[in-house]
């Protein structure tokens, strides 16, 4: 099994007619994922790549195709609205790839999520992959912008706030001959949908996940919260890595959420929380997979 999505998950792409959205929609099709529709208001009735129908609204796309998930590639000013539209259509999962959504918009979305059945991954994230069993992990479910070929079906779960750093961890696992159950990039924004803890709980319950890599970075306290929970509740080995030990306080390091402010959110505090919870800490990113494999 896997968490959140399986190779059978049918999903749509909101913003499929944009350059970025279209490019990654094609890559998902090439990977063998079940991308069943696109949504661009005003372009309903057209098709994407000659096969994927485009609808004017998420509700129509869901009614016609039975999709349960969505990837959002809509530009920042309209992205929060796209998430809310996905929630209104009762999708199980919305994955917001868009980078640069105003924090105030995400605060409103976060509140709406409290009373919704929809789960949100992102924004500002690489998305989610449950690898398939074909060549180069083809036939899996790829929602977002991750490179599919670096994956391999297996039993390690990956949670991360970063994009390329996640690929680094995934590639190390694959190169070592192991594979992933599901990889979730939760994104680098200060107000995300699912947190490290939310994803960790799902991995803990998933019988096919035998070990977990949790990648964090400076800013906020989400890693500490996940570690505190793991200490009491998680029965599986976890290896962690925290980026940003050398980041100067008060400076935003690329990601909107990667900032040490008021002495809070330091890499040091997060690593200490990991160690306290029995999570193996990789000192350099080159050791992420090795640290976990030694524990398994």
């Amino acid at each position: 099994m896997s968490i959140l999505v399986t190779p059978e998950t049918k999903f749509i792409v909101q913003g499929i007619t944009g350059g970025f959205g279209g490019r990654h929609a094609q890559l998902s099709l090439d990977y063998g994922s079940k991308l069943v529709a696109g949504v661009t208001p005003g372009k309903g009735g057209q098709t994407f790549a000659d096969t994927v129908p485009i609808f004017d609204s998420v509700a129509e796309a869901v009614a016609e195709t039975g999709a349960t998930a969505s990837a959002i590639f809509v530009p920042p000013p309209f992205a929060a609205d796209a998430v809310l539209e996905g929630m209104a259509a009762d999708l199980e999962l919305v994955v917001a790839i868009t980078e640069g959504i105003p924090v105030r918009d995400m605060i409103s979305v976060k509140k709406a999520l409290e009373t919704s059945k929809t789960k949100l991954i992102g924004p500002n994230c690489p998305g989610i992959v449950t690898p398939g069993t074909g060549e180069n992990s083809q036939g899996g479910c790829r929602i977002g912008i991750s490179p599919g070929y670096i994956h391999k079906a297996g039993n390690i779960g990956v949670i991360s706030r970063s994009g390329t750093l996640t690929y680094e961890a995934v590639w190390q696992i694959t190169s070592a001959g192991y594979g992933q159950s599901t990889c979730v990039g939760i994104g680098g924004d200060p107000v995300p949908g699912m947190t490290h803890l939310d994803v960790l709980k799902l991995f803990n319950e998933d019988s096919d996940t035998k070990g977990i890599i949790m990648i964090g970075e400076i800013g906020g306290t989400a890693e500490e919260e996940a570690a505190a929970w793991a200490k009491e509740n998680c029965s599986k080995p976890i290896a962690g890595f925290i980026a940003g030990a050398t980041a100067p306080p008060g400076r935003r390091m690329g990601h909107a959420g990667a900032i040490v402010s008021g002495g809070k959110g330091t890499a040091e505090a997060k690593k200490a929380a990991f160690r306290e919870a029995g999570i193996g800490v990789a000192e350099t990113p080159s050791e992420m997979a090795d640290t976990l494999l030694k524990m398994m």
Partner: peptide, 28 residues
């Protein structure tokens, strides 16, 4: 390329006894 990887690169330089001159993410 990538903010998380860029931070980690700085950290790795420091880990091996060097000092990074900058953070630079060229994007995806």
């Amino acid at each position: 390329n990538g903010a998380g990887l860029a931070m980690s690169t700085m950290d790795a330089i420091k880990h091996y006894g060097g000092e990074p001159a900058n953070f630079l993410d060229v994007g995806g």
